[in-house]
C-alpha cells in the first residue's frame, strides 16, 4: 500500500492530539497542590507568601510532564519529523 504525504500528515495530527492528553496529569496534580496550599493558608494565614512560592515551585515542576506532551505535539505538527 502506498502511503502518501497526506496520510502521514493526518496520522501526525492524530498523534499530536493523543500526545496532548498528557495535560490531564499536570492538571490534576496542580489542582491538588493548589487545594492543599489553600488549606495551608487557611490554617496559617501568616505564612501566605511562603506557601504561595512553594506552591508555584511545585506546580512548575509538576507541569513539566504536560509540557513534554505539548512539545511532542508541536514537533509532530510543525516540524513534521515523519515526513523527512
Amino acid at each position: 500500500m502506498d502511503f502518501n504525504e497526506n496520510f502521514i500528515l493526518g496520522c501526525s495530527a492524530i498523534g499530536a492530539g493523543l500526545a496532548v492528553i498528557a495535560g490531564i496529569g499536570p492538571g490534576v496534580g496542580q489542582g491538588i497542590a493548589a487545594g492543599h496550599a489553600a488549606a495551608a493558608v487557611g490554617r496559617n494565614p501568616g505564612a501566605k507568601s511562603e506557601i504561595t512560592s512553594t506552591m508555584i515551585m511545585g506546580q512548575a515542576v509538576a507541569e513539566t510532564t504536560g509540557l513534554y506532551g505539548l512539545l511532542v505535539a508541536v514537533l509532530l505538527l510543525f516540524v513534521k519529523p515523519l515526513l523527512w
Partner: peptide
Amino acid sequence: VSLSLRLFANVLSGTI
C-alpha cells in the same frame, strides 16, 4: 534539559 525545556515550552505554547 528539563530546566530549559520548561521555559522553552511554556513560552512557545503562549506564542502558538
